[in-house]
Design a binder for these strands. Sequence first.
DNA 1: CTAGTTACGTACCGATCGATACGAAACCTG
DNA 2: CAGGTTTCGTATCGATCGGTACGTAACTAG
Lengths: 207, 207
Amino acid sequence: MTPGGRPLAFEPDAALDAAVVTFWRHGYEAAGMAELTQAMNISRPALYRAFGDKAQLFRAALDRYIALNMGYVEDALEKPTSREVAEAFLTGNAKAVTTPGRPPGCLSVQAMVTDEADAFSQLAENRRVIQTRLADRFRRGIQEGDLPSDEDAEELARFMITLTTGFAIRATDGESQDALLALARRSLAIFSAPNSNSPRTEGMTHD
Amino acid sequence: MTPGGRPLAFEPDAALDAAVVTFWRHGYEAAGMAELTQAMNISRPALYRAFGDKAQLFRAALDRYIALNMGYVEDALEKPTSREVAEAFLTGNAKAVTTPGRPPGCLSVQAMVTDEADAFSQLAENRRVIQTRLADRFRRGIQEGDLPSDEDAEELARFMITLTTGFAIRATDGESQDALLALARRSLAIFSAPNSNSPRTEGMTHD
DNA sequence: CTAGTTACGTACCGATCGATACGAAACCTG
DNA sequence: CAGGTTTCGTATCGATCGGTACGTAACTAG
């Protein structure tokens, strides 16, 4: 059984890595099959046999991208305090989107601009999972007392995601890692000021 | 002289508005000529006669988009204090990227994800102009004393642009206007905390 | 009217898109 | 070896891409 047949002439993981880079650089639609096959150094039919169609290839590439390039999320979530979680999340992202030798920005953001419902929903789901885990972590922080009791965990998570999304686009626009790290650091000011649920004691915001 | 000839059968500005919406929704490359001509309700040759090629049409659409949908930038820059400038800029953007009846997000961000060097450089230039004007305004704020003397005007401007870029993507992801407005308000916490140039930035959590 | 000018849109261009048919080649089993 | 299985890549598919040639229609000037 399992007679074997002709063996593969390429390393699937290595080819997938090349696909990751291509999608990372160009997004989903702008990454053509011609460029993908050239980057992966395999023929077009070989790509379809190994990975299915373009949407399935993207799915596989996204999974590998997350596994290889978004480890900072897990690391951040394990930090002892909410502030350290936020700091690790933001600085980890700032570094990930400006890593020398890799495309600037974030595959998940580059490919968000697409009509393809498949790719879009996968990316939105990935974002939502991270945002939920951050919110859960901040909720724990409220319970443990390292965040004010009237803090809005969802809003804080939304703030984090919004910042990292911005980091990704800024990186593709050529922003330096140092500049993004400085922004990450200063963004933590949100932990040192009254939140939106606090009563308007200090006359800081006047709508 | 100038005998006239056959008159135009469509309103150029109305057609351009339709092009704006199409680029806004899909970005530069994903907006096909077929969809553009259908949205603009003119034939393909009519489009090329009136606007040149796709790149020129995009340029015209971008100019019109800026004129009609980015007025909040000018409004913000005229505010009396740096903090009010920032608040108006952020809230104005939050509203602009979630205006009912218009596509969510920002044309300038949607179209940033593209290989087309023409479109990309135009958008990058637009961003750079706004960022520079913000930085200039914040520099004035430092001179006038409404910002600390050790504040980094460039960094503050970078922070603003990064946030609004994030707002735009979050909007396309379905975030509500209220949620973005809350983020805009809370982002102003950066004005109430020591900046990165102050000695000993770390370890100042309130506890 | 005729001549000149400009815009009209059908029909089409070559190039590229994602995706495949198909015969040859490389492996295993017996 | 023969028979079965799997991958190989050339050559090609129809659809769509951005862009245009060209004959016709609508206007003005004389």
